[in-house]
């Protein structure tokens, strides 16, 4: 600190200038000024059956070009639908009334945004108007959502009862995996053991006591949530008047599918039988 007195002031001034320059750099170069800056805009409403992971300030795009953002998301009063308010730039005020608003995902794992495809109506949507035609978040998103959330296991508040099932192949099914019926978790896998005599896998499942009306000829299958998600046991109800009891065994089972079979099935559009055959000749079915 041997500098003459005045150089303190100069050095400090330089320091302050540098600090503010850094701030300006951060604010302008690394943030989306466009996300914050909104010129004159008008508001349009759209109702969606399901908005997936859409968030406030998500972009609104026409032909891929950003024209506005999501202003607010709420539940439409008295309806099982989401009410999404879109704030759209005044420059783009020629949106036909019968345009379709859809929820898309940028990339496979990206954020969701709203895309608007123009309709053919001569009337344009006005400030405060509503886009009546919408498409909810797509099915693939639901599958990817399952991949992240991996289904939830039902609570065991009401107590559980145990049933078992034998599979020739359980894939990567593990203890704790959910047991689902009609897609709803009703229990969890308690144990996966291999039978040393029959050489198959014995899966013990704890099912919530609330679901005690499951027919005893129901089928158990090992499914995968989404494309790359975890595996779970799905129970498909049968038609028998007798119900499953503690210690029952499910006779009808379907083992875990190989991904190759699954893709084969997709390609031939859902032939339920002979998955191995169809994966060998996927085009023969058409």
């Amino acid at each position: 600190m041997s500098q003459p007195r005045s150089s303190y002031a100069v050095g400090t001034g330089l320091f302050i200038v540098l600090g503010f320059a850094a701030l300006a750099y951060l604010a302008t170069q690394t943030t989306s000024i466009a996300n914050v800056h909104q010129g004159a805009s008008y508001t349009v409403e759209a109702h969606f059956a399901n908005i997936g992971q859409l968030k406030d300030r998500a972009p609104v795009k026409i032909a891929g070009v950003r024209v506005g953002q999501v202003e607010s998301i709420g539940l439409a009063s008295g309806q099982d639908a989401a009410d999404v308010k879109l704030s759209i730039d005044k420059r783009y005020d020629k949106i036909p009334l019968d345009s379709v608003a859809s929820i898309y995902t940028s990339g496979l794992l990206g954020d969701q945004y709203i895309g608007i495809e123009y309709g053919h109506s001569k009337k344009v949507v006005a400030d405060g108007g509503t886009l009546a035609l919408t498409k909810p978040a797509q099915q693939l998103e639901a599958m990817l959502g399952k991949f992240f959330g991996a289904g939830g296991v039902a609570d065991n508040l009401g107590g559980t009862y145990t049933v078992s099932a034998r599979f020739s192949n359980v894939g990567t099914l593990s203890v704790g995996a959910p047991v689902k019926m009609a897609g709803v978790p009703i229990g969890s896998v308690q144990a996966v053991q291999v039978d040393p005599v029959k050489l198959d896998a014995k899966v013990t499942m704890a099912i919530d006591k609330r679901y005690n009306q499951i027919p005893d000829d129901s089928a158990a299958a090992v499914f995968t949530s989404g494309l790359i998600g975890t595996q779970y046991v799905a129970i498909q109800p049968g038609g028998s008047p007798d119900v499953l009891k503690n210690g029952s065994q499910l006779i009808l089972t379907q083992s875990a599918m190989q991904l190759e079979d699954l893709i084969g099935k997709f390609l031939v559009n859902g032939s339920s039988s002979g998955s191995s055959k169809s994966s060998n000749t996927p085009s023969g079915k058409h």
Partner: peptide, 20 residues
């Protein structure tokens, strides 16, 4: 690099709330 960054970083929540 830059477009991913600018797409996600928010001036209010990240710079003002976070940094400042």
């Amino acid at each position: 690099f830059w477009s991913n960054m600018t797409a996600v970083v928010n001036l209010r929540t990240d710079i003002v709330n976070g940094v400042l």
